[in-house]
Design a protein around this nucleic acid. Structure first.
Lengths: 234, 234
DNA sequence: TCAAGCTAAATTGTCGACAACCGACAATCC
DNA sequence: GGATTGTCGGTTGTCGACAATTTAGCTTGA
């Protein structure tokens, strides 16, 4: 038989139902189809998807551990409500992790290995900003930062970052216009690259302090405005 | 009716089976009855405890999210194996969080509110060190640090710290003698208190850099030795 | 002897059903 | 009328059983 290198079929995604459902729910929350405070009843989801409650329940517990859902005993799951203070805490923790991760990347000389990918991601962001694909842009933005955290080599940094990232994506999706000038935001990532290339740990830290600080102020600010307009959110 | 301010009954602790089982399992792991790599079969635990597999499964998933267990698809749960590098990452993340938490406590002038409790906890530690109650001492030690993180006011700091703390407790329990001089370790916490009282953020950061740095070196060192002696741990 | 294939036991993934529980409304009593 | 108590629908917590998957032991063949 001729050695056929390209396969006819992809192995069909056959991970547990709970995983698929978890992805579904995550998408629904991140995209805003499910809003903060909404009830997520096991039986309802199970009926819609056509499975029993067990995998739905498991998926919900998974999202609970990532912070997208909260559960009250004997009352079920709800999409987590977020207030401005929460988001502020979120960004503060993110900053702690990311600045040290960046410092480690510089210290251990791992910048060269990722610089090309980082640059490519910035270009992607710029392209998306021009097409007003904001949700997508935020996704790539987080990928950019994730890559830095990942190459720090500290697995716990990455795990913690991933948890935060899903929440950041969820709450930025709740804001109509996240940034006034998306293109500028995208290009600002070049400053981070410059700092990484400088080879100075503290410069890398400072770059992220600034970058994440700006994002923090912007997003938290938007949220405070949102809260002022709509006082009964919970 | 006379306004009865003090209540007659406390609300009885009535948490779900899964929670009780989660506690059981946590204790078993932290105390070393379950060792890294050990299988945790749902059916076995369920039979022993006398409940169905559902709550056991849920408890296991809970511990998975805290990092005490790992699960492989269709193969079940196992007590997480930890190597020296893991623990190093653990302490690095812990340091990131705790130093900024301490800085915030100082910046926002919340030291006075907790200083008495911190002192009391140190005395507890000293007492336990004299009675060679090392496991207990580590528990109070973590409580001390937790109190600082808690009063930072950043809820995510606390959540992240709690996750790390359970793992720290688990892996310190695996080492026969954690510290050479437990009494000294206990009293060293006074240095942290001094730094907090100084009112200088950076001094607080430095104190924790030092304190956690020492712990990190000690524990990681012990673990590397353990690995050298016992190469096939996984 | 050893590798590959097969079989059986054990374990997880999923299911449908029942019991316990919560929240809200209706009924009752003072 | 106001507050307490009883009831009801709906949801979660738990259960035992079945299907799918993995693992280990056994057999077979070279």
């Amino acid at each position: 038989m001729t050695s056929r290198s390209e396969r006819l079929f992809q192995p069909l995604a056959r991970d547990a139902l709970s995983q698929q459902i978890a992805r579904m729910l995550t998408d629904a929350i991140v995209s805003g189809k499910l809003k903060p405070g909404d009830r997520v009843a096991e039986s309802v989801i199970a009926k819609e998807v056509g499975v029993s409650r067990a995998p739905v329940r498991e998926a919900a517990r998974l999202l609970e551990s990532t912070g997208l859902l909260v559960s009250h005993a004997n009352r079920g799951f709800f999409v987590r409500t977020i207030d401005a203070e929460d988001i502020d805490s979120l960004y503060e923790l993110r900053l702690c992790i990311e600045r040290e991760a960046a410092a480690r990347v510089v210290r251990e000389g791992k910048v060269a290995g990722i610089i090309d990918r980082l640059r490519a991601q910035i270009e992607d962001m710029v392209g998306m900003s021009e097409e007003n694909q904001l949700i997508l842009q935020i996704g790539v933005d987080l990928q950019f930062h994730r890559l830095i955290v990942e190459s720090s080599g500290n697995k716990r940094f990455l795990a913690a970052f991933d948890k935060l990232a899903s929440e950041i994506q969820a709450c930025t999706a709740m804001i109509e216009t996240v940034f006034d000038e998306p293109g500028l935001v995208a290009r600002n990532h070049y400053l981070i690259i410059d700092a990484l290339l400088s080879g100075d740990e503290d410069e890398a830290r400072a770059a992220l302090d600034y970058h994440i600080g700006v994002a923090r102020e912007t997003v938290v600010g938007r949220f405070r405005k949102l809260e002022a307009e709509e006082p009964a959110k919970r």
